[in-house]
Design a protein around this nucleic acid. Sequence first.
DNA 1: GCAAGGTC
Length: 774
Amino acid sequence: MSIVVFTEKNKAAAQIAGILSEGGFNRASIDGIPVYDFKKNGKEWRIMGLSGHIMGYDFPPEYSNWRECDPAVLLDTDPVKNVLKKPYATAISRLAGQADELILACDFDREGENIGFEAKSIAEKSSRAPVKRARFSSLSASEIKKAFGNLVEPNENLAMSAEARQILDLKMGAAFTRFMTLSVREHARTKGIISIGPCQTPTCGFVYERERLIRDFKAKDFWKIEGIFSHSAKDFKGTHRAGNITEKAKADEIFKRIKDCKKGTVAKKREKESAVNPPYPLNTTEFLKRASKYLGISPETALEVAEQLYLAGFTSYPRTETNKYADDFDFKTILVGFSSGEFREQVMDILSRSQIKSRNGTKDGHDHPPIYPIRAAGRQEIEKSVRMPDAWKVYDLIVRHFIANLMPPAIFDKTRLEVHVRGEIFDATGSILKDAGWLAVYPFENKNDKLLPNLELNDEVDVKKLSNTRSKTSPPKRLTEAELLTLMDKNGIGTKATAPSHIETNKKRGYFETKGKTIAILDTGFTLMESLDSSVPILVKPDIRARIEALIQDVEDGKKSFDSTLEEGSHLIREMYSQLRSGKEQIVTKLAGTITDESIAADKKNFVGECPECGRMLRIVRTDKGRFVGCSGYPSCKNTYPLPKKGALNVLRSKQCEKEGVAVIKVGNKYHWSVGMGPCFTCDSEKKCFPPEVIGTCPKCDGSMFIITTKDTRFLACTERCGYTQSLPKEGRLTVKGKCKHCDWKQIRVKPKEKDANEFCINLRCSSRKSNSG
DNA sequence: GCAAGGTC
């Protein structure tokens, strides 16, 4: 009797082989793919790990040329399923041919069931052996043994629900993406792709919605009355109970009443101890959020680093929903590893307790434990094994989080004072960290002490200053990547493993970019979302994903057939497609504009700046008749500016004309020209805008030596025109650097073509020249 | 060349 088992990945195959064989298995390989075999109770077992999906959908080849088929045709075309990883298919066939029983043992979820069915469909071509399913929700010995002792039938509905998702996602993504891309190319020359998908588009939608709030925001004035109080030489601040006062008259009236007061009284005092609990164990989403927030690492990179740390055996499996530990989780073994290093004190404290208790969350994916360090390792060891820049930082975060989770809460002493000034109430709060608890190992959240002087009820305090200041309400802030991940998670956009890739897709397409930790939408993204929002609003919102999800849930539950669901889903997509098509012109002309403008902005040589008339892009236009600065909004915007007829043009990025000019251009090596103003040498501000580049003091008089560059030579001359000059190196690009260490001249840097740059002092009297005359 | 989902 021969039994063949397929698992979702190699690691699981090895693990399961270890458990079922109780350690005595043999590792073989079929065309490089590991297979674990062993004998037990007279039965021969062979366990092979797949590699996630090994098959995938695509349209038949005759539909693959974008220009040769109307994208709408894709909506009525059934994609076909192909093997994407041939070696796995070969191995499956070979194993199945000799099997008396096949067992699918992939992860117990929709995709896992589907991956199992991929193996089943390949196996059934060379085998008539019965196919069973082992269902387990963790890779623990007890679960695995139970699952293999109680085999069930494979769940076709569950597998088909994932199948429906794949087909609908592909149909929609391919048709919409081709349609948008081809339409935009009718108006703009670009190789770029305008993609739309049920996850990437709502992801961009979140960023768009926030941007709208920011752009539509209207600041309002408010007033705030604050006091600086003092007692026994210590100052503290209090805020009037009214908080942000929106009516000026009201603020003025209160302020007028108390502004001359010199004393106040403590009318109430409340002291409270408050505890801040440690964070829950890390699941993927939480890990990615914290890596972005604390370490500034993008979700995509963070997941990749965690994957490598996992493969190198430092941390546990990084793709998990679970944020609670199982009851029998062995903290002790891991903690012992950390008991001699930086965390010695805290770890010894945890180990000394009769029972180690984690602060658990409530999510359980029933597959993997939270992300935790498998073993303690030093910085050098990590960096040697995982050659990625942030490996240590990520590992360190996982370790600190793991230990913090097992530690006691942080205790703050909080004090609230109510200070009365002629009947007006001011609130002051103070907070002192009394016991750091878990914060001792978690430096990412800094909670600063805010001290109040030692005051008792009815004590008198001095009023040092009272102010009534006007402020403006501030617009909402841009989303951070951490917040975006939260929104995606809440709205079911993507999965723990794919969310970072949807963010990445949007960046790749030029829809948004990250600036530090926040996300800034780009013109193309904004315009695309804006026009989709008016023509196919469902696309911009999480609803689209929710609709597809609801459809396939019915397949899973057996409430609807696979075929009728596909038809229903295709109908939904067709409807959106026709909405998109009827809004085409309106969407595409605007979108083409932003794409043209972005490519103009990227053309550093000719890009001049933003058109003050219409906000689109100004660039240098050359025709056979001559050259000028023109607007990308032409013909609707006819804004143009003349340019000098001769000389190479260089737009100075760091210079802005102080008068009304839109940009400053260097003309040859001769002079400057302000776009919209004309040549700078006719301008009375020339000396101010282009002060002579002073190198040092003149050795002959009180003047300064500065660089004069003419068409054929360059040299130093004196600002006082005393007649002293000095030659400069003739070749190479010359820049002025910082001060010389030995004299009061500035050093120069010369970079001749195809030679190394040289930095030195050219003061003939400088002491550095004696030792280093080259 | 297009989506999203696995895994490496």
